[in-house]
Design a protein around this nucleic acid. Sequence first.
DNA 1: TATGAATGAGCGTTCATTCAT
DNA 2: TATGAATGAACGCTCATTCAT
Lengths: 205, 205, 205, 205
Amino acid sequence: MGVDTESAEQLNWRDFDNDSLPPLLSAAVQTFVTHGYHGTTTRTLAASAGMSVPGLYHHFASKQAIIVAIMDYAMDDLWRRSIAAQAEAGPDFEQQLALHIECLALFHAYRKELAFLAATELRSLEPEARSRHIAARDRQERMLVEVLRAGVDQRVFRTTDPHQVARALITMCTGISQWFDAAGPLSASAIAKDYVDYARRIVRT
Amino acid sequence: MGVDTESAEQLNWRDFDNDSLPPLLSAAVQTFVTHGYHGTTTRTLAASAGMSVPGLYHHFASKQAIIVAIMDYAMDDLWRRSIAAQAEAGPDFEQQLALHIECLALFHAYRKELAFLAATELRSLEPEARSRHIAARDRQERMLVEVLRAGVDQRVFRTTDPHQVARALITMCTGISQWFDAAGPLSASAIAKDYVDYARRIVRT
Amino acid sequence: MGVDTESAEQLNWRDFDNDSLPPLLSAAVQTFVTHGYHGTTTRTLAASAGMSVPGLYHHFASKQAIIVAIMDYAMDDLWRRSIAAQAEAGPDFEQQLALHIECLALFHAYRKELAFLAATELRSLEPEARSRHIAARDRQERMLVEVLRAGVDQRVFRTTDPHQVARALITMCTGISQWFDAAGPLSASAIAKDYVDYARRIVRT
Amino acid sequence: MGVDTESAEQLNWRDFDNDSLPPLLSAAVQTFVTHGYHGTTTRTLAASAGMSVPGLYHHFASKQAIIVAIMDYAMDDLWRRSIAAQAEAGPDFEQQLALHIECLALFHAYRKELAFLAATELRSLEPEARSRHIAARDRQERMLVEVLRAGVDQRVFRTTDPHQVARALITMCTGISQWFDAAGPLSASAIAKDYVDYARRIVRT
DNA sequence: TATGAATGAGCGTTCATTCAT
DNA sequence: TATGAATGAACGCTCATTCAT
């Protein structure tokens, strides 16, 4: 994916000020969110990026390549933030859970469109990218499952099925991208704090 | 929506044995889930329903009319079950919350495709149906918010923002439709029981 | 064409009170005039005749058969009237011309829709009916040419090219069907009188 | 219609050597004449223009836009020639009538297909273009009516109803487009001369 | 790079027609 | 006879993509 992961630990995972997506992809994200992949035409894509259709094809080989770049970027961004959050959390499982959920919540609030696509357009990916996406999603889920399982082993958490709880927590956070409004009364960090609380309660011993 | 709600209380809201969707719509649900609305062609739709394309148009005026019928059915089915669940719960707010979450979880497990479309294809609806869908979704959400708010007022529940909790619970349940496997190790009712537990813990005083 | 021509001489060629077209064909004439043959669907045809589509096919083998019946009827009706007019005119060429033009004018006024189709939808006929229509049209034209030619031979008329004059007169009358209004200030017979005058002037010695 | 009328007087209205219709529209004229608007498919149109269907849509927004361009062109071309003819005629009403009829006759001979469509496909135009076409047609008719009326006032012409005579003359000329054959024995200018004679005779005092 | 012009394939929809009832 | 249901073929139009300039 051409992303250097070596510097992941230095990454400030709470910082969403700058979006490193190229303008073309940023515009494409909006369009795909609004109309879906199949409902979006290359003309719309080109127009939203302020260029001609052949101009589009100068940067990307196909419409599929554009959604793939977006999906890859989304999964990679979330993964790098999650790694950084876990690194910051240190060995305490409660803290690991807290920062993991905070990371998920912030991502789905600040990057709501990107996150929405990641959750929605899996079916629009062609086989290769789809496999990659599924792998990334599973790796992401496994990361949380491991935190929960370890916490349960240490009697810090209590739950019958860490896997199921992980999925519940993840989809709960995923939902944020559907209704979060940056201009609304709730800040992303306030929401994240609440969701961390929900998570703690769910696994409280 | 032309549905008689007077018999809602007699409805057995835990019974998902029979799907009253006409075969054509059942087939369409599968196809729309797999390829999305815009990724589905009328030829695919016709083939999946075992008929010709004009045959399709004999029953429905347009491709849009098909997704509209599905979306309306989904929201109406969930609503009627929710009403029945609340009626069964009686005046106890804890019981109301429990049955409401159970109802949501069961619906998203047993009717996972239908529920998935309801959550995914809002953007594919034309204005009129879209407004109707949003209204139905909001009504559904409001119902849960009211249970939470009333419970908080009675000191049965504790939460800073019933509205936010409702959305967290709803999207948590919505997520079930993404991974539930009827052939898997977890039964729908077992999952529902767990999710009721999660909900209780989140609002525990 | 299954029309008995033996009684042609008894026909009152100035009488347009009763249209012997079956109701279905009368309705079809209106529809074809409004939308053209190819712009008219069998559903429209059926609706305008107050019957179902298969009901239409009970009476006529195809959409083509309907226009053919109309076109045949139109050409036959005009022909029979023309024959009757000529019979009434007797041996005088001036009178023959007068009654022939009167007949043409009346037909294109009183049967304006029918006449309009006859002039317009030739191209929509399939080969066999088309040939028949062209033959009928030519026969009709030849009839007028013969009157003119004979009149020229007898020094009653003067023109360099009877054929061309015939076409000019015919299309002049054909035009009536485009603007005649039964509710307008000009009666069909007044118009016919004027057109006879035009014709006389054109061939005046 | 985006046509500069200021140079109308310089226009040589008898010159039909060059058709300024773009090739695509020229091909479309032939096809529409043969099959009618509704009987012509976009595939036929594309094939007759030697291009693909999307190629067609690169130049015109729709099939309707093509017939509209043709119809507008036809009415505009005839109008500009008529203006030029009248300018050439000067103040003499007999001369005005003569040149007007010559212009009409030449147009319907040299541009027979275009003229045929203008007379035939009014009903295929959508409301806006239809209104424009009717206005152009009426303006054209009014021009001739005015010549006749003025001539009658000056006792140069004699007729009871200039309006009716105008229509008779116009439709007579319109008819030329139905049978004129450039390869036939009669030249367009010879025909025009004859038709001018017919017109003169009809209004002779 | 950017663009105007082009295209094979396929879109949602409708056509004339048929047939069991 | 009349109808509801059906269909192969074709409709007008648009898709993602390409290429000469």
